[in-house]
């Protein structure tokens, strides 16, 4: 078992009302799964990913990651945990504009205090694997959207995480580029990386091994 969410509640207070973002949510994820989360805008897809990614907290319920209780952890240990095991891919790629492709991919390694020589090797592996060696000195603005997302994925993968969280990874791409990215995810999954993606598209969701439907912050079992 990679992670386990039990009876997660997350809400915000708006005016006098309590608005639920996640309501009594349960989820178990085994290593090697490829899960797609679907649902309309505002159904809580991103919130769920953020909770799983430990970027966001919740009010009630428990979260176990590799049998450790995340909800009881201190901020510092939590960030250690996700630094070690989780990679993020975003819809808007979120590359640092002032850094080159190479440097963008290198960033997570810097924060893991990995030695320079090893960093070089790891980044070179990524560049190779995604066929972007020739682009390593370019800045994000000089790349197409698909290429930028490749860099985003390379950055998410470079630290060898167990889990990739992807929030609408193809949302800003055309269908060709989108398909390439999904193909890539599939390959990664076959290599053993666990993937959870949020998506609007049935086609993309189909790449996953199972699909989780969300509506108004709860699982929609229909």
């Amino acid at each position: 078992m990679l992670l386990e969410l039990n009876n997660i509640f997350k809400w915000v207070n708006q005016g006098g009302n309590r608005v639920f973002l996640l309501k009594d949510l349960n989820l178990e994820v085994e290593e090697g799964e490829f899960i797609s989360i679907m649902g309309p805008s505002g159904s809580g897809k991103s919130t769920l990913l953020n909770v799983i990614g430990m970027l966001d907290g919740f009010q009630e319920g428990e979260y176990k990651f590799l049998d450790e209780s995340v909800h009881a952890m201190k901020e510092k240990n939590r960030s250690k945990l996700y630094k070690e095991y989780i990679g993020f891919v975003f819809q808007a790629y979120h590359l640092i504009d002032e850094l080159t492709v190479y440097e963008n991919i290198e960033t997570p390694l810097l924060y893991k205090n990995i030695k320079s020589a090893e960093r070089k090797a790891l980044v070179a592996d990524m560049l190779d694997r995604f066929n972007i060696v020739g682009k390593k000195d370019l800045f994000p603005a000089q790349l197409s959207g698909g290429q930028q997302q490749l860099v985003g994925i390379a950055r998410a993968l470079v630290a060898k995480p167990k889990l990739i969280l992807a929030d609408e990874p193809t949302g800003n791409l055309n269908s060709n580029q989108g398909e390439e990215i999904m193909q890539l995810f599939k390959e990664l999954n076959q290599e053993g990386v666990t993937i959870i993606q949020a998506t609007h598209s049935e086609t993309n969701a189909a790449y996953g091994s199972r699909t989780l439907h969300l509506l108004d912050g709860r699982r929609d079992h229909k």
Binding site: K76, H94, I96, D97, P108
Partner: peptide, 15 residues
């Protein structure tokens, strides 16, 4: 945005 990315990439506040 940059700060967000760095935090997600594992940067600590002190860094």
């Amino acid at each position: 945005k940059e700060v967000g990315i760095r935090k997600v990439a594992g940067a600590q506040r002190s860094q």
